[in-house]
Nucleic acid binder design. Structure first.
Length: 509
RNA sequence: GAUCUCGUAGCUCAGCCGGUAGAGCACUUGACUUUUAAUCAAGGGGUCAUGGGUUCGAAUCCCAUCGAGAUCACCA
């Protein structure tokens, strides 16, 4: 244990000897918050020059002690609660117990440490330097902190000194990060607001929020390597879901007009600044709609999210050097037109060997297992994706890449699919859902053929899902959003770890 | 998985062409009844990530391991 930890444990013992419980069980009634007092405190100056306080005559606050400045027989503290920080003013005279000054001299001045949770009662006032503060009349220790917090200081201009910045420590001890870095707290508040805004929007649309299995015997609905686990009683392998799509569609088969699920997905792939092994998706499916309707709804939903998260209710977000406009309508661009626009290459008129030649000439990595559709996808990923900064619906994909999507109503070889790209990243993927069970079975069989050719991303056959389609699924539109990436976009973060409370880390030591 | 960079006090960092481990904040003691990055005075605190090697001598040079970040690959 470090010197400072030992000293705090000694203080803990001395408090107990003085009859003070460092971890009292009873509740502490809070009646005010730091930010509210600072924003709303009022006083008037009388004719004789004295000040008259107009509100917050009696307040009770609780929070962490984050700074302490002794000034003889007075003391200034900073109390941090869930809303922010406020200064406390304590005088020895106010906290005497009869003739006994031990409480102020020993308990408050010696045995209290930065990071301790305290509860105080008193009245608001403005110091002669102009800071709204609370004059403390009663003081109670609520919970003793045994480890020293990193002390981050700010000056009057807002410059930060000695910030707690080491990413490893911040992620491993997010509780410390959240305590000393108020900006981090704001990111997660925004994340919560983003989810809430989407949920409200979907509820207003009349969709039903549902939960589907995370443990699945067949990992379907997407192409990714799964986490595998084992059920002891059933003595069978189970997989953590890589997607929930096929279960949500079964619910549409079952007669719900619309369902949505916010849920964790798990993919056993590499980790980097945009990938965490578990991540959050929003998927929703609506009967009797198609992907054109879904584009309209997506525009409405994201505009609403942008307005909800912007302090001024605006629809733009700064992302690096770019200003993203979330008010619709968004550009709708077919995949073939997008490639033609950014590369001049007409993929529609090209055969597989032409595309292979193009890839080789442009240093795009390909392998023998890739068919024409996969080659087109690679060209898009290398030459187009990063330039789609403003929200753009990329529509009408080759059928081979989209085994769960209905064939295009007028364009042979394509499907009714769109992906939404913002700031060069995919944030949503949507289809007019394939509900023809015979076509779906053939698509699965094509996937099996691709798998045989060496495509590790090919999708597995799901017989029960096919059975459900044979009972008939109404025409349906569906979409999936990456909530983490959307949060990154709206909070200006470039690492997924900054929008996850507890990103995946290797074990310590 | 590959490559590069990093790991020194509770925190932020300096020291790194080898020669006894440093600063600021935090902490301890003292002064101060309106301070605010409080101030002033004195003081304590280190297995320099871990393990090897080179050397008379390693925080410093070399190797390995662990952890983190960045870039790439795979994916969303």
């Amino acid at each position: 244990m470090t010197e400072q930890e030992l000293l705090r444990r000694e203080s803990l013992q001395k408090l107990r000897e003085l009859g003070i419980d460092p971890y009292p069980p009873e509740m502490f009634e809070v009646s005010a918050f730091a930010a509210d007092i600072i924003a709303n405190y009022q006083e008037e100056v009388l004719e004789d020059g004295t000040k008259n306080r107009l509100n917050y005559h009696s307040v009770a606050l609780a929070g962490r002690l984050m700074a302490s400045r002794e000034a003889g027989k007075a003391l200034f503290m900073n109390l941090q609660d869930s809303t922010g920080r406020i200064q406390l003013y304590l005088r020895r005279d106010d906290l005497m117990q009869g003739e006994d000054g031990t409480f102020f001299d020993v308990v408050i001045k010696k045995l209290l440490d930065l990071g301790d949770y305290i509860g105080i009662k008193g009245f608001a006032f403005r110091t002669k330097t102009g800071e709204v503060s609370v004059h403390v009349q009663e003081f109670k220790l609520l919970s003793k902190s045994l480890r020293p917090l990193p002390i981050v200081k700010r000056d009057a201009e807002g410059n930060i000194f000695d910030a707690f910045t080491d990413p490893e420590q911040r992620y491993r001890m997010r509780y410390v990060d959240l305590t000393v870095n108020p900006d981090v707290r704001q990111i997660f508040i925004k994340r919560s607001k983003l989810v809430r805004t989407m949920r409200n929007f979907l509820d207003e649309l009349g969709l039903l929020e549902v939960e589907t299995p995370i443990l699945q015997a067949i990992h379907g609905g997407a192409a990714a390597r799964p986490f595998k686990t084992h059920h002891n009683t059933l003595d069978m392998p189970l997989f953590l879901r890589i997607a929930n799509e096929l279960y949500l569609k079964r619910l549409i088969v079952g007669g719900f007009d619309g369902v949505y699920e916010f849920g964790k997905m798990f993919r056993n792939e590499g980790m980097d600044r945009t990938h965490n092994p578990e991540f959050t998706a929003l998927e929703f499916y609506v009967a009797y709609k198609d992907y054109n309707w879904m584009m309209d709804v997506t525009e409405q939903m994201l505009e609403r999210v942008a307005r909800a998260l912007d302090e001024n209710g605006g629809t733009t977000v700064q992302a690096g050097e770019n200003v993203i406009e979330f008010a619709g309508p968004y550009t709708r661009l077919t995949m073939f037109d997008a490639i033609k626009q950014y590369t001049g290459l007409d993929v529609e008129a090209s055969d597989e060997s032409t595309l292979r030649t193009y890839c080789r000439e442009n240093h795009i990595e390909i392998d023998a297992s890739m068919g024409k559709a996969k080659l087109i996808d690679e060209i898009f990923g290398e030459k187009v994706e990063e330039f789609l900064i403003q929200p753009t619906f990329l529509i009408d994909y080759p059928v081979e890449m989209s085994p769960l999507t209905k064939k295009h109503r007028s364009k042979p070889g394509l499907v009714e699919r769109f992906e939404l790209f913002i700031n060069g990243k995919e944030v949503a993927n949507a289809y007019t859902e394939l509900n023809d069970p015979i076509d779906q079975r053939e698509r699965f069989e094509e996937q099996l053929a691709l798998a045989a050719r060496g495509d590790e991303e090919a999708m597995a056959m799901d017989d029960d899902f096919l059975r459900s389609l044979e009972y008939a699924m109404p025409p349906t539109a569906g979409i999936g959003f990456g909530i983490d990436r959307l949060t990154m976009l709206f909070t200006g973060q470039t690492s997924i770890q900054e929008v996850l409370f507890f990103p995946q880390m290797r074990p310590e030591k």
